[in-house]
Amino acid sequence: MQQNDRYMTFSISGGQFAVPLSKVHEVIPDTDVTPVPMSPHFLTGIINVRGRIISVISLQLRFGLSAPAAASDASILIIQNKGALLGIKTDSVDSVIQLAGEQLSPPPSYSTAPYNNYTKAVAQGDRQLIVILDSEKLFSFDEFYAGVPSNGPAAAA
């Protein structure tokens, strides 16, 4: 953690989330997506970013959070992992914060928060808890593909 002590925070459905700044590829304004049939429900679609096709996911749908108020400064936060890119639809991208190792605590093991599986650590923010997401896990759609027949267009229905 010590090396990656800067984080980018963003809001989704009123919650504060963060990913290490080193994992942030870029932030673009929200844009129309092309829906992908047969894909996980939380994948809102694909976008073209300078010739590259990037999938955009909704953490609100993925984590089953309540619908956000219509946000005017909605952005897509593009994160990177081993050369792969993934867009996260956010209500707003907030700021870059510095967090020292001791400010971070492990995710509460008893938590029933739907994103607990994706939580790497939590930190106390100004007003609320900041959930630091395990960005690598976001790239894996295993929870969607697991238990679904691999040839299953029906899965998306």
């Binding site: 049939p37 047969m38 994948l43 010739g51």
Partner: peptide, 25 residues
Amino acid sequence: KLGAELQNIDGLDGAAILGDGKPAL
């Protein structure tokens, strides 16, 4: 190519960017 997360889906070969700059599957 689509992202790795979409490559398991049968019947999707990839995407192409059409004249308006938007991708189509």
